[in-house]
Every structure is written in C-alpha cells, then in structure tokens.
Design a protein around this nucleic acid. Structure first.
Lengths: 345, 345
DNA sequence: CTGTTAGCGCGTTCAA
DNA sequence: TTGAACGCGCTAACAG
C-alpha cells in the first residue's frame, strides 16, 4: 500500500499523532500508547493503529516528545579527544549500536579538561539525554553531582574501579593496572631486566599502566625510578621518537622500553631505524593498544590489544538496558586485554 | 550576585521563561525577544531582563524552543567514515566551531553508502537541524531532494564543483583534480617518467585525483593504462604494502608511485624497508593528505597537504552565516593544497 | 516597542 | 482498556 498524501490540517504540514488517531477512529492517547508498545492496549487496536500510521507516513516528532516526556532520544557521549584513534573507535562502535536502537549520539570532546567536561555535561543535560556515556571514572565533584542529580543512566568507558571502589558505577572496560603489569611480566619472561616505561599525556589510565609496570618490576626487584620517562605533552609519533632518543642517550643500559601507547612506540621504531639502533637485539620496544599500523612496522610491534570497539558496543548495550529501566546482569563488565607478541621484543 | 533558589511553581522545578517574565515585570514574549537579541526591544528592558534571567539561573529549554520554532540547535554532519583520520579532523574542527556558537553536532556516518546517507539524513531532518554539513557533492537524487525540500542551510565539505556545475551549492574545499595533477607534475619535474597511480576506496574524490594524474601524464605524453592500480577495498597501511609489492613485481620499470592517500603510501614505505627496495633511488613514493606520521617515516614521505581542519572550520563558519539568514561573500571557498616535498621523492 | 493569544505535537494524569 | 483534559516551555502572529 502506498503512503497517502498528507491529510494533515496543521500549518506545518506534518502528519501528527492526532491525524493518525482521527484516521484510525481512536483517541490520540491510544495511538501514543499503541505506537510506543505500552502494554495495556488491545492487540487488535495496536495493529490497526500501526497500519494507519504507516499508511499515513506518520513519524513522531522528537522535539514534541522530548518536551512532553522530559526525555529526548539523544545519548550524550563524552570523550577526551578526537585525535586519538582509541576514542574514535569507541565512539564509532557506541554510535553504531545506539543508532540501531533509535538513539542519536551527542558527542562532546573534553580535551582532558575536567572543567570543560563539566561544562559540556551541563550543556548536554539541557537536552535531557536518555543516557550518558563517559570516559573513565575520574571526574570532578561538580561533574559527579550533575550526573547523579540528573538521574540519567550512565555507563563509564575503558576503566574498571579498583576493588571496593565505585562499586555501584556501571562500567565496561578492563583493568589498566593489570594490563601494564602483564606486559611488564611478559618482557621479564623474555629475559629483559632493565625495562623503562615511557609515557605521554599522563591521563588516569596511563598512570594506572605505570603503576602496573612499577608493581611488576618491584616484585622482581628490578624497579628503579630512573626507568620512568613521563612527559605530559600529548602523545604522538614524533614525541615517541624524541623520547626514544633521550632514553638511549641517557640510559644506554636499558634493554627494553614499554611505551604507554602505540603511537609513541611506532615513533620510537622509526627513530631506531633512522639512528641505526637494532630492535629488539639492542633494545626491545613494546607498545599499548595495538593501533593501526603496529603490525606493519619494521620490526612489527609487540603491543597490548585492547578491545575498544567491543567496549564501545558493550557499553552502549548496557546503557540500552539501563534506559529500558532494567539492570544489567552485572554493573561491571571486564572485557580484558591480550598481549600481542611480535618482532620488536 | 548569587543565583536565587528556584522560584518556579512548575512541576518540573525548572526555571522558565514565564518565571523570568514575572520577576522582571514584563510579558513572556518580551523576555523571549530580549534574550534572543531580537531588535525592536528597549535597551533598558533587555538589560533588566538579562539581569533577572541570570539571577534566576534561567536556561532556555531546547526542546520547547525546537517545538515552537520548528528549528533546533542541532547541526547535522554527514561523513563517510570515522576510521579515516581525514574525516575525523573535519568533524573535530567543525564541531568545535559550531559548539562555540551554541550548536550541538549530530554526526552521521554513511560508510560511503548512498542509501545509508539518505536514511541518515531522513532521521536527522526529523530533529529539524538548523544546518547541515555534508561530505562531497555526490549524492543520490532522493538525498538531494531531501536537502532541497527541507530548506535547511547546507554546506558541502572537501570538494569544489567543476566549473559551471552546481554553481549554487555552498562548499568549502579544494580541487581534487588539480591536486592530483599538481603532485604528478611535481614528480615529472623531478625527472620521473613512469609514474604509477595506486588507489583504494575509490570514492569520488579519489577518482578526481586519478583524473588529475591522468591529465598531467597525457599532457606529457607519458600516460599508459597499465600505470593505474585501482582497488575498491578500504584504504589501509596493510593494503598499501600489498599494492606496492604487486606493482614492483608486475611493473618493475615504474620509477615513481603516487598513492591516493597517505596510509597506503606509509604502508608502501614499510613494505619497501622490509623488501630492501630503496626509496627513492629505486622507486619514488608520494602520498596524499599529509597524515600523522608521514613526516616520521623513513624516508620521510612526500605528500599533498590538505587543509582539512581549516575546511571544517571554514565550512562551519559559512554555515553559521547561512543560518543567520545572510549570504557568504562567495558560495564557494577554495582553501587549496600544498605539495610537501620530503625524502621519498 | 510591548502584551495577548494561540498554538507547536506529544505524554500523562485522571475518570470513566 | 480507553478517552478527555491538561501541561511541557517556548515562539509567532497580531493587536495595541
């Protein structure tokens, strides 16, 4: 059956709920209930209403719906940066899942700035989002208060709370500390003894990887403060090269370097080629996140594969559950990580 | 002065326009006009209203505003992929500019699929966006019709129409054909004679670069169909390596390869290192877009620097002009490009 | 220049 | 289970 031409008498020319009601011979409220699948409505009616609305080409108006119900079809997502592929992958996966469920994604970029995050959240809450996705568990008090008082269901991405902390928070991710320790132990098992940790950006997750590395080295009795190379600048290939040169110059006895992110490690590999430093025979290099290109490097880069796409999707799924008013089977989902051993170690 | 506690008598507890009107002793419409900076309002009043609204902590409700005015504070942006840094840069810049002007960005990912683009546009138009940003000038008829009939101001990204075509369309970008030709002529000027063109994804902009390359070679009397290596698969470092190996095996006489995107070229450089093929002495390699890492390769990669961030920002600016009901000084803005000569050629 | 009136399109009471 | 009435918060058309 073809959609009929617009029979509305509205000034805007839109087909409205009332148009459907009139055509179906029922009240607007019934149409509203039927179309939203609210129970307590005659199955026969719901079928008739559905048919008529399809025939008329009726589509609900999100603004009207938001105004009346105090809840929009938006889901707000807060990520630190768009210049890090990690977060883009998260965004991509979450957005795809949410759209399939009929939600629009409102993205906010915090630039790792707590007060910008707060401001963004404030703006987004004005749109009365149906749900909220935020990166990490670390937020300033005002932000936490906003999230709590808004009553909007919220899922945290990437990170899992330390045991006994934030137990009520919904999150999907993996334990960054464990991942840092795991890679370090892997390097130890390969026989490396002077393992440096080189990091940039220094966001909370990077710091947790640092702690993991520290713990693992301390357990092995191999920790030394001079093995830490921390740089607060944004992460990049170029910076990786710079860090690599610094470390090789100032600590030539280092036999392995664990970079907190693959872009740094890739930059280090390129610098090694340039400087004629043999990897891994002279020094081993490991990265984190297993980003695009790491398997194409020379030598190919050992890294920690993190399931960012799956995190984005699973977090969106958990949020969908919460938005339906249900509880997920567990408030915390650990998607773990995987050591990818390649030629650079 | 501190914001007063909420004086609203509304069920929702929200401070509304009427609350401000009451407190200021004027009518709601006056408040509405004053706050939106509509002229034809007494300067004294607008000051009083502003003061009162700030004191009460009044914030307009976007949903109510959208319902009443038939226009939301959303701007929809359609891009092909989130897995290509090019489009993410575009998104980042546009989003930043738009947010500063008080607009929320609704992003849609088309996956280079014309019907998905159409469907996304349909969904987004339901939200009555104040403006529209789309990638490229190529859209299916239904999409073009939607854009036209919606009356929503629209700016096209990245591409400029061929002379005499789409003259009315608003766009910000550069001439892809010219860029392709410019790099080819640059290679010719360096003495290369058998210049292959290797491409993936094959979207309309890639094809235009191809035409530019073709024209330049034909002018020089050096064109041969066997120099074209087109692969419809998505672009990636790995694919660049594969293409490079193919070309070197099947056309060993090629002395330069122009890749349609830097990720392919970077992959080719890595493959060359792996295979022990000297770049540029045995074969030169050039890329396109000057993506992250191209200046860190070994050898560093010659490329075409494209002003994607500036395109995103300028397009957003042009859209802001259109949304104000004004006309930009010119409907088409050419931001050009730049050949970046590095070691690989 | 300002106020009054009338919606925008829908969800949500409450009665029936 | 259904319908009537009302309200969500704001803009727009018109009158003054």
């Amino acid at each position: 059956m073809q959609p009929l031409p617009n029979k509305s008498h509205r000034a805007t020319g839109r087909v409205t709920l009332s148009d459907v009601a009139r055509a179906a011979g029922v009240s607007p409220s019934t149409v509203s209930r039927a179309l939203r699948g609210e129970r307590a409505v005659d199955p026969a009616l719901i079928e008739r209403v559905t048919a008529v609305s399809r025939m008329l080409g009726y589509v609900p108006d999100p603004a009207a719906r938001a105004l009346a119900s105090q809840r929009s079809d938006h889901v707000a997502i807060l990520i630190p940066l768009l210049s890090n592929a990690l977060f883009v992958d998260l965004l991509d996966a979450a957005q795809t899942t949410l759209r399939a469920a009929g939600y629009q994604t409102l993205m906010g970029v915090t630039h790792y700035d707590a007060s910008e995050e707060e401001q963004l959240l404030r703006e987004q809450l004005l749109h009365r989002p149906a749900g909220l996705l935020v990166t990490g568990l670390d937020h300033n008090p005002a932000t936490r208060k906003l999230m709590a008082s808004s009553q909007v269901p919220c899922v945290h991405l990437m990170d899992l709370p330390a045991i006994g902390q934030h137990d009520e928070a919904h999150c999907v991710g993996f334990r960054q500390t464990d991942a840092g320790a795991a890679m370090t132990r892997h390097l130890l098992s390969k026989g490396y003894r002077r393992i440096a940790f080189a990091a940039a950006q220094l966001d909370p997750r990077v710091m947790q990887r640092l702690y993991g590395w520290r713990n693992a080295l301390q357990e092995a009795g191999l920790y030394e403060p001079t093995l830490e190379w921390l740089n607060p600048a944004p992460s990049s290939l170029a910076l990786g090269g710079v860090l690599f040169e610094q470390i090789m110059q100032q600590s030539p006895s280092v036999d392995a370097i664990f970079f907190c992110n693959d872009d740094l490690a890739q930059g280090a590999l390129m610098a090694a080629l340039r400087l004629g430093i043999a990897v891994p025979s002279q020094v081993a290099i490991a990265g984190f996140n297993d980003l695009t290109g790491s398997d194409q490097m020379l030598p190919t880069l050992t890294s920690v594969r993190t399931p960012r796409a799956r995190i984005g999707e699973a977090a969106a799924q958990m949020l969908l559950t919460l938005m339906r008013g249900e509880e997920p089977s567990s408030p915390q989902l650990d998607l773990s990580f995987e050591i990818v051993q390649r030629q650079s170690t």
